[in-house]
Nucleic acid binder design. Structure first.
Lengths: 238, 238
DNA sequence: GTCTATAACATGATAGAC
DNA sequence: GTCTATCATGTTATAGAC
């Protein structure tokens, strides 16, 4: 039994996505969404604290879709080249209708205080799930776990870049992005085969060391939603 | 002799940067800027068509600073490892005070229609200048020009990633970012030495081919400033 | 051409009543 | 949970002073 809360949330999200797809993210206002969902502006904000939160909710849902799609493809793909291509292509498949929304995901990337930043702690769960798919793609290599983890993270990063490319790609059906995936996977996947060989151990160790030292210590998550430094508005809970 | 126009522009930009640095980009309003610069809101907009345009003006200026700083360092650095480190570190030097502004640069990255997007045609000039610095760092290798160009572009891309890391880096003096530069440069620069050797020619050719096919054809620059699909506002020049 | 003063607008977001 | 104000801000517009 879905609660009323959930049903309302769903209705808002569905309505918003429809409008985003049709007009784009910026051209769709929260008032449009609320009106189309048959409720007042405030009600929409009650369920989603910001317009970008709607995109994040969508993205969370899509993560599940990506997992399903990737797993389906993985079942047919045993070698790493095919599995990597499967991981990337299935992501593109899942997002194909929604390039217009995708930009909103990146908008907060450069703001460390934004809870919705792709790199922030607020999205860690989603990030881990996404990274896990790439780890699965690499599974047949049987790499040491530390190596596999580093590679999966690197692939997740590359996948972000790919989405950026995808989003800017005006070729029909984003054919260029599709080809780019094939070319890059074809180029680098064979090299990965060597990543487990003993000769590369020192290199791998060095990369792992560098990435470990580089990884920021998890901060206690500063829940700073207030952009306006002074403008406390009327939120005066003195 | 600087025109009045230029002097006023300078004053606005300087004031804005001061406020951005102190309070951050979002917390600084155009009204604040105009007031602090001792002029009316309209005057600020007369000189800068948008708030982000201020950031871009700043970025343009910083590009020049980076060129100067990098060249100064290049004069002392002959081997590629040192030159690459110089290129990256000088960029960080130039931006060190301004991490709070940097986020604004990335905000529009995911919007293909935004003239200020780092990947868009509106910023092509700045992008080329920035890429050129990395090409200079590689100069001692004497690589074929096609190879050098591909590598320089790749480095420019990596440098964007570095800025993203820099911006999120909360370590004191962004020490982690500094170390990351050293580690990555130390790791990859030696490998670049082989990029010119005949054995790697086929690999390089393949990468160049992939990147050429992937590069989008320069579009005739759709100067779309109008985000709101329908909202023509009052600009009704029927 | 540069700027002031002021009003207006659309939108994202919030507070407080019901 | 939902609605009705109400706000702050980016941005545009207008009319005129120098």
């Amino acid at each position: 039994m879905t609660s009323k809360r959930e049903r309302t949330r769903e209705r808002i999200l569905e309505t918003a996505l429809g409008l985003f797809r049709k007009r784009g993210f910026d051209a769709t206002t929260m008032r449009d969404i609320a009106a189309a969902a048959g409720m007042a502006l405030g009600a929409a904000y009650y369920h989603f604290r910001s317009k970008e939160a709607l995109v994040m909710a969508y993205y969370e849902r899509n993560q599940s879709a990506h997992e399903a799609a990737a797993h389906a493809r993985f079942a047919q793909a045993s070698d790493v080249t095919a599995r990597l291509a499967a991981a990337f292509h299935s992501k593109l498949d899942v997002l194909s209708r929604d390039r217009k929304l995708l930009g909103a995901v990146f908008r907060s990337a450069g703001d460390p205080d934004d809870p919705l930043s792709v790199f922030g702690s607020g999205t860690a769960g989603l990030r881990d799930r996404s990274t896990a798919i790439f780890a699965e793609a690499l599974a047949p290599l049987g790499l040491p776990s530390a190596t596999a983890e580093v590679l999966a993270r690197a692939l997740w990063l590359a996948h972000l870049g790919l989405l950026l490319y995808f989003l800017h790609d005006r070729s029909r059906g984003q054919a260029r992005t599709r080809r780019l995936v094939d070319e890059l996977v074809g180029l680098f996947a064979p090299a990965l085969t060597f990543a487990g060989s003993p000769g590369f151990a020192p290199v791998i160790a060095r990369v792992i060391g560098a990435m470990d030292r580089a990884r920021p210590p998890e901060r206690p998550s500063a829940r700073a939603k207030n952009k306006r430094g002074s403008g406390e508005g009327r939120s005066g809970s003195a």
